[in-house]
Amino acid sequence: MPAIVQVSDVVKRYESGFEALKGVDLEIEEGEILALLGPNGAGKTTLISTICGISHPTSGTITVSGHDVVKNYRKARALIGLVPQEIALEPFETVWNSVSFTRGLFGKAKDDAHLESILRQLSLWDKKDAQTKELSGGMKRRVLIAKALSHGPRILFLDEPTAGVDVELRKDMWEIVGKLKQDGVTIILTTHYIEEAEAIADRVGVINQGQILLVEDKATLMAQMGRKQLRIALQEPISAVPESLGSYTLEIAPEGDALVYHYDTTNERTGITTLLNDLQTAGLTMTDLKTQESSLEDIFVDLVKEKP
């Protein structure tokens, strides 16, 4: 499938000389949900801002559905809805006016029925005449989403949509994202909650210090997550795996006092029972058993740590 958003070698350097993005390449496929994971200051928001037109790239190109975001910004931006990280609403404006304003900015004619359905979907309909300053934090965030959806975007950027949001709203948000996906909307969300990426994303990208470290199908990542290791501590250190155990994928721990066995919990058989039997047959005495699993968090932490 052709990429709906194509980011090619994008560098963003500020006047201070700070490089927020150091040559980012990213392809976002139409209809997918991509979660961008990264610690604070990794460049998530800068990347989104650069795609959405809030800042221009220092070098490199970005196209949205084939339209360059700088040269052909009207066509590119018309396809995008953006929910910013910070809540920014004009305090004295009503919810209805605020959402109508955004729709107008995007060049769309008045469509009350469309706005009503968005507000209802976000449980904002009974608040439509309220001034935004009267709303709770969660409600304000819903208004931001309603604004971003007001012109029927094909691509929706959610910049940390669930930061500081209660559990109920978070679930609602995931539900909304799911519905939008069904309608064929491409969704890019940034988060530093790994569970969030696990819960709703199709693909996960990891960004740190202005570089994309990895973009992978969630399924592939989950498969890595499903992998576990069994550490078998031995009474007597050994220097080589006994021949009778050659059929197992075993490693000897650096000190030689333990064997490490890798297995997949998603398999029907993990092979643990037969391994333990065979260990006994081989005459090895076990003093302890320990299992460990690698989570997305581990993968993430490893990735982020690797690049200093």
Partner: peptide
């Protein structure tokens, strides 16, 4: 901060 809207709109 609502200027983001003006900047990201066509």
């Amino acid at each position: 901060g609502t200027v983001y809207e003006l900047l990201s709109a066509p």
